[in-house]
């Protein structure tokens, strides 16, 4: 696979041509913020974004996804295998996708996620602007870099370098006036991506393994968790915006005729009160995580320790979306974890 270069002048034509041929999802402006959305021409594309409100997981596992449609006793699966080009993804979000890829693949392959995922092409892009709450510079280990992308785009003076990693990535070159990148351009791209790593204003104070151990050992510190969660609204915003949260609820919906309908899955949040609640009948119920503190702890445990062995990294990529989304501003993993480390 080759690295390619395109001039800034030719780049827009590339994006426009690519988006005429394929469905391209990339970062777009929404007022002063950014979201991933369909790119129909180059002027939609905002590669200078800092972070999007929702992570790109929504492309492969939409907020509401129909799993099965039914009509009386007849039913059929509803697998979406239309691939898209997911363009301009920052490395931390590729890492998020790497994590959901693994979790949807392990044990039981979830084709409702994987069909679209595997048919899609992911193109990363370098971070031009660093979001205020991000801390990706200080999380993970040296070998926990992004893996699931097909190509990676880096903007530099005068143009862009595209590093192709798979044939799917290589296939994009035909849409634009790309030429072979020089060794100097390639090393310039590497430098840009390396230099950005210490640009986050927020940092975790310890290594991921130190954090994992301390957080786990703090499990029984009830006072700590209930203090941390005192202002929690149980609104689940921290889950909803998280690139590695993938829990879902399944609900059936009737069409108005009450004969046909669909079985949908919706993003769910372990911070909401009913997440682990079971009805036992005769009005009694059991909530396996009844208090705010228990639910808050579960999220931190999941991000910092529970999945580390399976993933080889924490299940947090440092995007800072939860920090920004939490109205009470208690979700910020940097504040929470640095506080736990001091206890």
């Amino acid at each position: 696979m080759n690295p390619y270069f395109i001039t800034a002048n030719d780049f827009d034509a590339f994006v426009t041509k690519m988006s005429k041929d394929k469905k391209v999802i990339g970062p777009k402006a929404k007022k002063q913020k950014f979201v991933f959305g369909e790119i129909k021409s180059a002027d939609h594309l905002r590669l200078d974004y800092d972070v999007t409100i929702l992570p790109p997981k929504k492309v492969f596992t939409p907020t509401c996804q129909t799993l099965v449609t039914f009509d009386g006793d007849k039913f059929e699966g509803n697998v979406d295998n239309d691939g898209v080009i997911l363009f301009g993804v920052h490395f931390y979000d590729i890492r998020g996708i790497d994590i959901t890829d693994l979790l949807f693949r392990e044990n039981n392959r979830d084709v409702n996620y994987l069909a679209k995922r595997e048919a899609s092409t992911i193109v990363g892009s370098n971070i031009q602007n660093v979001s205020k709450r991000s801390f990706w510079g200080s999380i993970g280990t040296s070998d926990s870099g992004p893996k699931g992308h097909d190509a990676f785009l880096t903007k530099m003076d005068g143009g862009y370098v595209l590093e192709c990693l798979t044939q799917k990535g290589e296939d994009l070159v035909k849409f634009g006036n790309w030429s072979k990148a020089s060794a100097a351009q390639v090393s310039e791209a590497e430098k840009i991506n390396k230099d950005v790593m210490d640009k986050c204003s927020q940092k975790l104070s310890h290594s991921s393994s130190e954090i994992a151990e301390k957080v786990r050992n703090s499990f029984d510190n009830q006072e700590l968790w209930s203090n941390l969660a005192e202002d929690c609204f149980s609104c689940g915003s921290c889950n909803t915006v998280c690139p590695t949260c993938y829990c879902f609820d399944v609900q059936d919906k009737w069409n108005l005729n009450q004969v046909s309908g669909m079985r949908n899955r919706y993003w769910d949040s372990c911070l909401t009160e009913d997440f682990a609640k079971v009805s036992l009948g005769a009005g009694s119920e059991e909530n396996f995580r009844e208090t705010r503190g228990e639910r808050f702890r579960h999220r931190i445990m999941r991000k910092a320790t529970y999945l580390n062995e399976k993933l080889g990294t924490p299940a947090c990529v440092g995007c800072g979306r939860c920090s920004a989304a939490c109205t009470a501003d208690i979700a910020d993993p940097v504040n929470v974890i640095n506080k736990i480390m001091e206890v």
Partner: peptide, 9 residues
């Protein structure tokens, strides 16, 4: 669940 869930979605 609260409105934040739907708003964020």
């Amino acid at each position: 669940y609260p409105v934040c869930v739907e708003c964020k979605r």
